[in-house]
Design a protein around this nucleic acid. Sequence first.
DNA 1: GACCAGGCACATC
DNA 2: GATGTGCATGGT
Length: 219
Amino acid sequence: MTENRLMEIYYLLFGRFGPQHWWPGETQFEIIVGAILTQNTNWTNVEKAISNLKIADLLTPKKLDEVDAAKLAELIRPAGYFNIKTKRLKNFLAWLSSQYGGQLENLEDVPAGRLREELLSVKGIGPETADSILLYALNKPVFVVDAYTARVAIRHHLIDSDADYERLKELFQSNLPADVRFFNEYHALLVRVGKEFCRPTARCEGCPLNKLPHIPQTG
DNA sequence: GACCAGGCACATC
DNA sequence: GATGTGCATGGT
């Protein structure tokens, strides 16, 4: 049964890696900025960009909304795609400013489903970024799917290889208890095992999920 | 030097 | 509706 297999995977991962303490960010806003900057990008590059923003004392919605776009682009350059990500950050801030007075606390009481739709309407925020913001910044019980989640699920025969984002999300959300802490840890653990053992060219040797049925990686 | 990394929007068929 | 492409830096 899928539910039991998903729990087994969780316990194997947690037993090996322990708590991951996600999201790696000190404030709600830092988490949101990180969620946008990490799109298709290595986290270490994102850390450099966020460090630049901290040093420049710009890591608040108001300051980032007001800063010159060219300056912002220069600061986030290490995160890659810096021109498009500048626009995406500005798009988010424009939405926050116009719809919620620029105050993140005004998002707290908005139902998760409605908030997700609104976030998806912001150009540059897709399903993964929206769900990351909902779960990690706003503590809503939604499951975050990313490239690692998909790879692990497919390689372990939990879902068809052509499953889209929403189907992958449903796999986890409909078979697991909707709990913020649990979803937080589970996704973080999937990224951890993905980075160490489930990359396209990584080998399965030593993977804590090896005892489960899977497609052996030969790269 | 090629490949990869915690996506997304847009063009084209 | 499916498939392809641009966006860009930095580590392995």
